[in-house]
C-alpha cells in the first residue's frame, strides 16, 4: 500500500477477510482515494455500515467508524448527522443491507435529502451468509435460495433513489476504477443525499452459483455489459435489459435536512421566522 494512504487504514487489521478477487477491496480503496484526493479532514469523517461482507469495510478504516445492525446503517447515520452536522457521513452498505432490510431507511434518507454519501457494494448476493438472493440479484440468476433461477425482478437502485428524492445519483463499477473515484469525489462534495451504486463482483458465491468462473471472467463480463448513461439514452429500452448503465444520472441542489432542522430549532428558540 502507498505510504500516503496508510494513515487511512487500521493496518493491524489488514489483510482483510474478503475472498481473492472480491471487489469490496477495490471499492474501499476507491473511497479512500477519493477522500485523499479531496484532502478531507480525517477526524471530521464518520463511516457507518450495516451487516454483511461489505459492512466489514469500516473495521479496516482509520476514521470515526460505526458497524451497526442489519439494514440500519442509514438510520444510525441520520442520527449522527443530526447530532453533529459538521461531520461528513459516509455509509458503506451492501445490496441486501441497503435495498432489502434497510430499504425503508434508504428511501426516507433519500426523501429527506440528508447530507450522507451512500456507497452500495452491489455484488448481487448475500455473500456473508453463503449466497442467498437479494433484491438486486438479476432475474434468472442462481443463488442458494434460488436453485432454479431467481424469478424476482431486481431493483434499479439508482432509479429508486432518484424517485425517492436523492439529489446525487450515479453508478460505477469495480472495473472502471478511475471513473468510480471521480464519481465518489463528486458525491462527497455534494451537499445532500448522494448514492453511488457500485457494480461489484462476488466470485465465491455469485460467481460459483452462476458458473461464471474466475474474478477475471466476472470483470470481463462487467466490461462487456457496461455502457455510459449518454449512450444508453440513445438506445431502445429492450436493448438495455442486458446492460449495466454507468455514469451520473441525476444531480440537483435542494434544501438539506440538517440545515432545515437548524432553522426549526432557531424558530423554536425564539429566533426570527422565515430566516
Amino acid at each position: 500500500m502507498r505510504k500516503e494512504l496508510e494513515k487511512y487504514f487500521r493496518k493491524d487489521k489488514l489483510p482483510h477477510i474478503w475472498c481473492p478477487g472480491c471487489g469490496h477491496g477495490i471499492i474501499t480503496g476507491a473511497v479512500i482515494r477519493a477522500i485523499d484526493n479531496l484532502k478531507l479532514e480525517q477526524n471530521k469523517i464518520c463511516i457507518v455500515s450495516g451487516i454483511g461482507c461489505s459492512s466489514r469495510a469500516p473495521g479496516y478504516l482509520n476514521f470515526n467508524t460505526l458497524h451497526t445492525t442489519h439494514g440500519r446503517a442509514l438510520a444510525f447515520a441520520t442520527g449522527i448527522k443530526m447530532a453533529n452536522p459538521e461531520l461528513k457521513i459516509i455509509v458503506l452498505t451492501g445490496d441486501g443491507d441497503c435495498s432489502a432490510i434497510g430499504g425503508n431507511h434508504f428511501i426516507h434518507a433519500a426523501r429527506r435529502n440528508i447530507d450522507i454519501t451512500t456507497v452500495v457494494f452491489n455484488n448481487s448476493i448475500y455473500g456473508m451468509t453463503s449466497g442467498q438472493y437479494s433484491p438486486m440479484t438479476p432475474k434468472g440468476a442462481f443463488a442458494t435460495t434460488a436453485p432454479y433461477g431467481n424469478i424476482d425482478r431486481n431493483f434499479d437502485l439508482c432509479k429508486l433513489a432518484q424517485a425517492a428524492g436523492a439529489t446525487y445519483v450515479a453508478r460505477g463499477t469495480v472495473y472502471h476504477v478511475p471513473q468510480l473515484i471521480k464519481l465518489m469525489e463528486k458525491a462527497l462534495k455534494h451537499k445532500g443525499f448522494s448514492l453511488i451504486d457500485v457494480v461489484d463482483i462476488c466470485p465465491t458465491y455469485f460467481g460459483r452459483r452462476n458458473k461464471m468462473g474466475s474474478p477475471v471472467v466476472m470483470m470481463e463480463k462487467i466490461r462487456e455489459m457496461s455502457i455510459t448513461a449518454r449512450t444508453a439514452a440513445k438506445l431502445p429500452p429492450e436493448e438495455l435489459s442486458e446492460k449495466i448503465v454507468i455514469g451520473e444520472f441525476y444531480e440537483e441542489q435542494a434544501p438539506e435536512y440538517t440545515e432545515e432542522y437548524a432553522k426549526v430549532m432557531k424558530k423554536a428558540q425564539g429566533g426570527k421566522l422565515n430566516e
Partner: peptide, 18 residues
C-alpha cells in the same frame, strides 16, 4: 496505475512512491 487501483488487496504500487 490501473493494476494498483484494481488490486483488491492494496498489494501493488506503481511508480513515484518512496
Amino acid at each position: 496505475k490501473l493494476c494498483e487501483l484494481r488490486c483488491p488487496d492494496y498489494a501493488i504500487i506503481v511508480g513515484g512512491e518512496d
